[in-house]
Computed example of a mutant assay.
Amino acid sequence: MLVLISLILSGFWFLTNFPRLGLIKVILSYLVLSYLCSIHLTFVGVAVVDGVEAVYCDSSNKILESRQDWVKKVFDNDSQLLEWYKHECFNIQPSAFRARIVSLKQQFNQSEGFYILQTRSGCEWEESTGEKFGFLKYGYNGEDFIELDLNTLSWASLKPEADTTKQSWDADRNRTKLNKVFLTDICPERLKSFLEFGNSSLQRTVPPSVSLLQKSSSSPVSCHATGFYPDRAVMFWRKDGEKVHEGVEIGDILPNDDGTFQMSVNLNVSSFTPEEWSRFDCVFQLSDVEKIIVTKLNKTLIRTNWKEKMTKETSGRSRLREGRGHLLRPVGLREGRQEKDMLWKRDRDE
Rank of each mutant, 00 (worst) to 15 (best):
F12G: 03
I24K: 06
I8W: 02
T16S: 11
V26D: 04
V26A: 03
L4G: 12
Y30L: 04
S6E: 15
L7V: 09
I5H: 13
S6N: 13
I27Q: 07
I5K: 11
P19M: 14
G11W: 01
I24W: 00
S34A: 10
L9I: 04
L21F: 06
V32P: 00
S6R: 13
V26I: 11
N17K: 14
V32C: 08
I8E: 07
S10L: 01
G22A: 09
P19W: 07
L21I: 05
R20K: 14
V26R: 12
F12D: 06
L28F: 14
L7R: 08
G22D: 10
K25G: 15
W13Q: 11
L4V: 15
I8S: 06
G11A: 07
L7G: 09
V26K: 11
I27N: 06
I5F: 15
I8K: 09
W13I: 05
F12L: 02
Y30G: 13
L15S: 10
L4Q: 13
L2K: 15
K25F: 01
L31R: 09
F14P: 02
R20N: 15
L15Q: 09
I8V: 06
L15W: 01
L28P: 04
I27R: 09
I24H: 04
L28A: 14
S10K: 05
S29D: 10
S6L: 05
